[in-house]
Design a protein around this nucleic acid. Structure first.
Lengths: 112, 112
DNA sequence: TATTTTCAGGACAATAATTGTCCAAATTTA
DNA sequence: TAAATTTGGACAATTATTGTCCTGAAAATA
């Protein structure tokens, strides 16, 4: 897992590796070429529905592509803070706690 | 740091610990009592401007309160995914990379 | 118990953020 | 040079978020 690339950079390299124009990939995704261009440049976010399509197209694991997308989202959300590592650590524990809670009980109530 | 509490639960306990009605704290925050109630119940998000006010009011560290708020946000964003730990780990590396990059260069370009 | 205070939660409007398109200009490729 | 591709701004549409108001329930207090 290369952590030095954003989702956009990543899929751009994949696309260029196959010598595909934006136009064609965008058509597979059923979006405007301009939108895909923006996604590749990080000016728009990809959405989850695009993951399986791109994964199939480029022959990579859906799971990994999703990982790159979501880690980008998380990074983007807190990059402006000072104590990013602490935030992530506490978030991890919170998630563990909540998932565990969820096994025993029913729903999730989490919004902040 | 108690990771078993959301931001809302946390400030609710603080508030109740001082026997303050929602109304009064809400007034300090300059918001409707109903809004604070929702924040405490996790139906609304707190915003950053509230942090210093609440920290002062309850005599706690701004930094810690911010930590609770942001870790909540991160947790909430990815709680629905399977591989949350991996996501956090990759996000951490990405942030390190970006921060380091930022020291050398200028701005941030990150949005996904 | 009656009154008052507090709190919960739905409905709503206002605002903000996100998403995607269209188009024209710039760049790249053939 | 001509054609194809890509960039990026302006824009509209959609969606998400924020906070208020209000009513009724619950809790506290007299």
């Amino acid at each position: 897992m290369n952590t030095k690339q954003s989702f956009g950079e990543y899929i751009r390299k994949l696309r260029e590796g196959q010598n595909l124009p934006i136009r064609k990939v965008a058509s597979k995704l059923d979006i405007d070429p301009s939108t895909l261009g923006k996604i590749e440049r990080g000016e728009r976010s990809a959405n989850k529905e695009m993951i399986p399509i791109l994964a199939t197209l480029f022959g990579i694991e859906e799971k990994n592509l999703g990982l790159i997308l979501f880690s980008d989202k998380v990074a983007y959300q807190i990059i402006g803070e000072e104590n990013t590592n602490e935030i992530l650590k506490v978030a991890e524990k919170k998630i563990q706690y909540l998932k565990n809670l969820n096994l025993k009980q029913g729903k999730i109530n989490f919004k902040n």
